[in-house]
Every structure is written in C-alpha cells, then in structure tokens.
Amino acid sequence: MNPFERVRLGRTGVRVTRLGLGLAPLGGLFAPVGAGTARDTVEHAWKLGIRYFDVAPLYGNGLAERRAGPVLSRKPRGEFALSTKVGRLLRPGGADVQDIWAEPSGETPVFDFSGAGALTSYDESLDRLGLDRAEILHLHDPDRHFDQAVKEALPALVELRDRGRIDAVSAGMNQAPMLADLVRTGELDAVLLAGRFTLLDQSGADELLPLCADRDVSVIAAGVFNSGLLADPRPGARFDYAPAEPHLVDRALALRAVCRRHGVPLRAAAIQFPLTHPAVTCVLVGARTPAEVEDAAMMAAVDIPGALWADLRSEGLIR
C-alpha cells in the first residue's frame, strides 16, 4: 500500500494518511523515552509523510501530548489530522494508576465521562499540545462507564462537532461489541479499534466491521502488533500488554513461517492485514524512536501478494 495516501474519514471532510502514528509509546510505555527522542520521532514521521497523529491524556499521563505538541504546533495546521481522547482527567493523586508508564508526570488519571468532564478534558489536551483544535475526538475506554458515556460525554462531543471545534466524533476501545453499540447511536463518524482486527485476533469482524461498512463509519485499526508479539514473536513477548501465553507465541511463529515463504516480513503483514477489510480506513502504529517510524513506513509499503493471505486462510491462521 501507499502509507502516505490521504483518505477520507467516514462522511467527514477529515483526511488521514493510510499509516498514522500512535503516540502512546512516546509517553514512556513500558520503558523511558525522553522528551528529545519523542520529539525526534514525531519530526521523523512528518518528514516521511505521515499526516495523522493519535494521542490521549492517558499516554504517559500527559507526557505524550506535551512531547508531540511542540513539533505539531510548528507544522501547517491544515496539512495534518490529529486525534485525542476524553474520559479521563489528569489530576495529582488520580485513582486510575497504571504501571505501564515508565516516566512520572506528576499526575494520574481520574475517570470522568460527564459532559463537563469531556469538555474539560478536551480543553486541557489542547493546552498540553499547544494547539487550538483536534480534528477527531474519541471517547476513550468507556467499558465500565458506558451509560454515562452515551448519555453525557457523547452529546458533549456531538456539540463540539456542531460548533465546529472538532470535525469527527469517535470512540476508541480494546473491544468490539461496545463499539458496535456506540455506532448504533448514529452519532459516530469513526471508531478506533485496538487489537481486535489483527493477524492474531479478528473478533472485530464478527459484527463491528460489517456494521461500520454499512453505515460509512471509518475504522481506525490500532494495536496491530498486539503489544509486540506480532513484531517479534518469541517467549516473553507481550500480547495485549501482558506476557503472551505459549499457544499465542506458537501461533505468531506459524504466521511468521508462512510470511517467510512469501518473502514478506511478519511486521509488514501485521500492518497491512487490517486494510484488507473495506471498513478499515487507516492503521495506527506506535513508535518510540525515529528508526521504528522508518521501519513502520517501510513495512507498510511492502508489496504483499494475495497468495500470502490465501495461504494464511488455508492453514487456518486467519479467517
């Protein structure tokens, strides 16, 4: 694929590149990154041609937004699309403490899916980024707060769209059924589906992807490496943020073996597989260094023969 091709997001006027940069690693996901390396990574993504960037208050508890902002705020604002998320406010002593962030920010998240909380979260994100707007705003992980998110936060996002302060309303989750329920509200322009339409997990295709295709709701596919197992399959690699179980490692190794028969790196197949479904508009790949961004762009551009997908299906490795 052409990773830098611009495509329209759902029914909106927002255009994103087929390959977007997920900024969670720049918040110190699992290991420190540092402000300088983080900014160099965003700068290199821009140099290569990536024009869609996704961030959230949760990522590094504010660090990812603060690190990406100084780079993006110097770029021509009409030339890229940005998404951030609502549902958590960053406060000293917040209760949503996660041990996956390696660098302290002095704040931790507090869940808040009220309408006022969503608006406050958006404004505070813009302050951290040093920007005046984001094109896309996601409800972030409303799993345990679904009713409040639908009744309060979602109308607040719709109001922001109606007022022209954002262009697209979306939701980002690690599960598909609740995203399908959100799509049925009729208010979403896109969904960000993490880890549920990958070479190892195609559960998003059960219901969500056909529903999105039918309603012209764009799917942004994230977590395409399932936290790393599909990037480097080996014992000890992570799957969905935890050490992968042996049967998943074996499956990833089997996927890699088929890819090697076709001369295709597993990373390339992992990045490009989500785009085999017509509902998927773009793929987000996280990177923590300029070299990782370079590799993602190279993998996204690898020519993958249709016979590879056919062999993976015939061997029962994908549907």
Rank of each mutant, 00 (worst) to 15 (best):
L82V: 04
D311Q: 15
A257C: 02
E107T: 15
S203R: 14
A168D: 13
F30D: 13
V14L: 05
L160Q: 11
E159F: 04
R165I: 08
R15D: 13
I100A: 12
A194C: 02
A270R: 10
R251M: 05
P177N: 04
G115M: 03
A180F: 05
T198H: 02
L179D: 11
H145Q: 11
V293C: 03
D189Y: 00
S218G: 15
M173N: 07
L90A: 06
N61A: 06
V158I: 08
V249E: 02
K85E: 13
P290N: 09
S105F: 08
T276G: 04
A24Q: 06
H262R: 07
L248F: 01
P246F: 05
V219T: 13
Y59I: 08
G62N: 10
V169T: 14
D99N: 15
W46K: 04
D162L: 12
R11H: 13
S83T: 10
I166A: 09
G204C: 09
L208C: 12
G236V: 05
L129P: 07
V42T: 03
A45G: 12
A56G: 11
S121P: 06
R319G: 15
Q98E: 15
E135F: 04
W46L: 04
R256T: 01
V191L: 03
G94K: 09
G228I: 06
L129S: 00
L182K: 02
L193A: 01
G49K: 09
D250C: 00
E187Y: 06
P233C: 05
R161W: 12
L131M: 15
F146Q: 14
A81L: 05
H138R: 00
V150T: 14
V169D: 14
R313S: 08
P274G: 01
L255C: 04
A171P: 12
A38H: 09
V42G: 04
T120G: 06
D123I: 02
F197Y: 15
R18V: 01
R15T: 15
Y52V: 08
E294V: 10
I220E: 11
I166C: 07
R251D: 06
F30A: 06
L72R: 11
L230P: 14
A244N: 01
I100T: 13
R18C: 01
M298W: 13
R251E: 06
D214W: 09
L208D: 11
R15V: 13
L229D: 06
A222R: 10
L209F: 12
F111I: 09
T289I: 08
A64S: 15
L255I: 03
F4S: 02
